[in-house]
Design a protein around this nucleic acid. Structure first.
Lengths: 187, 187
DNA sequence: AACAGTCTATCTACTTATAGGTAGATAAAT
DNA sequence: ATTTATCTACCTATAAGTAGATAGACTGTT
């Protein structure tokens, strides 16, 4: 892994852990032993760095979409759960959550990139829900895009909640509830 | 309203709009025309100010709990919806969401205060759900505390999501879904 | 193969702005 | 006389970004 990728990964961790305005080039520089000015060489502005981070996540998402193309809707949705479970376990938060709470402090290009990512995620989950309904695996939903948003926000803020709570074992219970609400042949 | 209350209110708005680490005493000073050092007189450290903000929200919450004591569970839960709808309309975010994303940058006393608030909110919603079940208005839920958390987190990150979206009219639709999931005599 | 030029990635050293906070003066209110 | 609430003036640390030097790798020319 080259320095540029290293920077993105470290920054990604810092972003997820502390928020966009709460980490600095110096934080990165201390971790991977590089001068802040060298980080500026790769990412002239912090916005550039932020965009690179989101692009990385977008990449991962797109790859997941492709890789799970032929899986069942249930398997697809479980991929999503696994992702958020891991965030939870590592006391992390999803980038959407990490960035939106300080949204008004971000500048345009970064906001646009975040919008891109969010849109892609919503579209994917919506299509999974639609597919599940067509295959009669999921209950009939009145508005699958709204349901998709609900599902995403569930996961999104769960990881946030789990950080405040004493016992952060809520996630499994909640995922169970979500699945129960979704699947046709339960109870 | 005296200066101290003014400071809290302005800071509250800034916190909700930009996050805790993204607003400064100077921001406040510019808005209400007071020197930053005078703000330090009222709130020696930023943590003190943060705690005061949460305390205010805790106050409001406690008053709401008392005021709605004799209302139906449905009316109580609608009070909650109204609160989040208003946040949405004003491009705001709930304090829990605003603070948790940067949780690891906050220091102990502030974190504890946030935990207090969150716990109170969860307990309240849990009791509403229990009451609703006892009165046979709400469906039987396997774990009402988990359901309460889910409900709160839904609202919490919904307001976050609605900020990124082009058309932020999701909230009404989602609240409808949540209610449909909850109420016994629908459709 | 040798040389000149260019590109890449880093460095040191700096600037400008802001953050959070402190010290001490002051004027009015109690 | 003391407390309350404000001020001016300062300090120290850090943020983000810029300028310019340098060393090594890569490239094209003779």
């Amino acid at each position: 892994m080259n320095k540029k990728e290293q920077i993105i990964n470290i920054a990604d961790n810092l972003l997820i852990e502390k928020g966009f305005n709460a980490f600095s080039y110096k934080d990165i520089s201390k971790i991977i032993d590089i001068k802040t000015s060298s980080i500026h060489y790769h990412f002239p502005t912090k916005t550039d760095l932020g965009i690179a981070i989101i692009k990385k996540h977008l990449d991962t998402l797109e790859q997941t979409i492709i890789k799970t193309k032929d899986k069942t809707p249930l398997e697809k949705i479980e991929k999503l759960f696994i992702y958020y479970k891991r965030l939870c376990a590592n006391q992390m938060v999803c980038i959407v959550g990490a960035l939106t709470s300080g949204l008004n402090t971000l500048n345009e290009p970064l906001r646009i990139e975040l919008l891109n990512f969010t849109k892609k995620l919503i579209d994917w989950v919506t299509s999974i829900l639609n597919e599940g309904q067509d295959l009669l695996i999921f209950k009939t939903l009145t508005d699958s895009e709204l349901r998709a948003k609900l599902l995403i926000t569930n996961l999104m803020s769960l990881v946030q909640l789990s950080r405040i709570e004493y016992q952060n074992n809520s996630i499994d219970g909640i995922i169970e509830i979500i699945l129960d609400d979704l699947l046709i042949n339960n109870n």
